[in-house]
Design a protein around this nucleic acid. Structure first.
Length: 479
RNA sequence: GGGCCCGUAGCUCAGUCAGGUAGAGCAUCUGGCUUUUAACCAGGUGGUCGGGGGUUCGAACCCCCCCGGGCCCGCCA
């Protein structure tokens, strides 16, 4: 939306030979540099750049707040300290314009750290109105659809994204320092798998074939392990064609990592170390507050057993659930699952009875084997699988297996899933012959995990909506 | 998919219960002010009240449909 007064000022700038959209500016310092080190910098000449957030003036004395990537700093202008051309430029400047300032670091009479400007330069003339300066921008829809306005108007929002970036950076440092290799596996896949989820379908024109946006990168990363890479990871955008709510976005980010010769016990320790040291790095402590409640990341995390816990709280032993029993249980317990097979009913029981009680970081171990098509059996108990999920604040944060490496067993589990799929479970993935062929070649014992970056960022920024942590969350297109 | 709530000026919001000339603050425009910082003072501009239909002499307000958003529930390892 173009403001006619701003447009008129732009025209006057061009008329007087001022370029309102110049090519570069020497930005010597940032607001924080100056504020953090004022005593040593006082009296020094410097240059800053940023967006004008507030312009106040008393006669010929002007105060402009400039916002840069580190925060705000005040700029002072008056005929005594500022070039005449810059003083007259003030008539053509508005809140929202991006400005460059050359001046001297000092304090105002009221004690505010300021730049006494010698010269002011327009770096970009803004043509549309700014959001309100005191209340900011609170309309959720506008905040998400026009994130640039949100970032300018709401200072805490940029902190959320900085924290998110720090999390990802920490994951990479953690894994790189352990000798992991970062990979990028296909997002467009001829088949899909590695998770139970409905895929997005797209058309690959050059190949004249339907392709799927990946629901997981698991099977590709395992093929790298088979190839002998031993330690691999990927920061993976995955896509699941499901509903949107406060903890689910169809397009989301996981970090998955796999390491040869390890099992899920090794990975429990490693996950604990990764998450606790991340929290320590960001907050200087293991204890943080989430939605008014303390979350304690002090290792070791609590460990509970999936089947035992469901049995303890619901009285139902799901380790041997048949499909016939599943339906009865679902009816009796009032579970509204999409499919009444053992997988979905057991999962429903867990969500109903166990999940609400999980707050501090907790490992939930040893799932029923029928829920784990890609996992080795529990040593000594083939009804269970060596799988854990880590829960934080009642939400699933990660999922880990002692990876199934037996190709005969894997083929059988894929066939079981295929059967479920044909029986109407839309989330059961098809069998993957390419992967089976790879695993037949011989896969070392391996542990693997996927951790949700979006949800971790929610927790570490004290947010309850995943959309706050997605720079551009999916919104329905405007008609 | 179900329930509840919201949509009024660029932004933040009153006004809807009980129908009767469209409101405030900020922003913006004009003027004043040489240490302000939600600056201040004076005076202006600015509206398809989300869209469409209905009831009515008269609708931002009541009814219906639609669009967009939020929260909760269901579904989603």
């Amino acid at each position: 939306m173009i403001d006619k007064f701003k447009q008129e000022k732009l025209r006057k700038m061009l008329e007087t030979g001022i370029n309102p959209y110049p090519y570069s500016f020497k930005q010597e310092m940032h607001a924080d540099d100056i504020k953090n080190d004022f005593e040593t910098l006082k009296g020094r000449k410097t240059s800053i750049a940023g967006r004008a957030m507030s312009i106040r003036h008393m006669g010929q004395l002007y105060f402009i707040d400039i916002l840069d990537s580190t925060g705000k700093i005040q700029v002072l202008l008056s005929p005594q300290m500022t070039k005449p051309e810059s003083m007259s430029l003030l008539d053509l400047i508005d809140m929202g314009d991006i400005l460059g300032i050359h001046g001297t670091i000092n304090k105002s009479k009221r004690g505010e750290i300021s730049i006494e400007a010698y010269e002011i330069t327009v770096l970009s003339k803004s043509l549309s109105p700014m959001p309100e300066k005191f209340h900011g921008l609170s309309d959720t829809e506008i905040r998400y659809r026009k994130r640039h306005l949100d970032l300018v108007a709401n200072p805490e929002v940029r902190k959320f994204f900085i924290t998110r970036a720090k999390i990802l950076n920490y994951f990479r440092k953690f894994l790189d320092s352990r000798g992991y290799i970062e990979f990028e596996t296909p997002i467009l896949q001829p088949t899909y798998g590695g998770a139970n989820a409905e895929p997005f379908v797209t058309r690959y024109r050059a190949l004249d074939a339907d392709f799927y946006l990946r629901v997981s990168d698991e099977l590709y990363l395992k093929r790298l392990i088979i190839g002998g890479l031993e330690k691999v990871y990927e920061v993976s955008k995955d896509f699941r064609n499901e509903d949107i709510d406060s903890t689910h976005n169809p397009e989301f980010t996981q970090v998955e990592f796999y390491e040869a010769y390890k099992d899920y016990n090794d990975f429990m320790t490693m996950t604990e170390e990764l998450l606790s040291s991340l929290v320590k790095e960001l907050f200087g402590t293991f204890k943080i507050t989430y939605q008014g409640k303390e979350l304690d990341f002090t290792p070791p995390f609590k460990r509970i057993y999936w089947v035992e816990e469901v049995k303890r709280l619901s009285g139902i032993d799901v380790s041997t659930l048949t499909d016939q029993e599943s339906r009865e249980v679902a009816m009796r317990e009032g579970l509204k699952t999409s499919t009444f097979n053992a997988y979905h009913v057991a999962d429903g029981l867990f969500d109903k009875y166990v999940k609400p009680n999980l707050h501090d970081p907790t490992f939930v171990l040893d799932f029923p084997a029928y829920m784990c098509p890609l996992t080795k059996d529990k040593r000594g108990n083939p009804k269970l699988s060596e799988r854990f999920e880590v829960f934080i604040a009642g939400r699933e944060e990660g999922n880990c297996y002692s990876e199934l490496t037996d190709p005969i067993e894997q083929r059988k589990k894929f066939e079981d899933q295929e059967r479920e799929r044909l029986r109407g479970d839309a989330e059961a993935p098809p069998s993957d012959e390419e992967f089976l062929e790879a695993i037949e070649f011989g896969m070392p014992p391996t542990a693997g995990i996927g951790l949700s970056i979006d949800r971790l960022a929610m927790i570490l920024t004290d947010n309850i909506s995943i959309k706050e942590l997605l720079a551009f969350p999916t919104m329905r297109p405007k008609k």
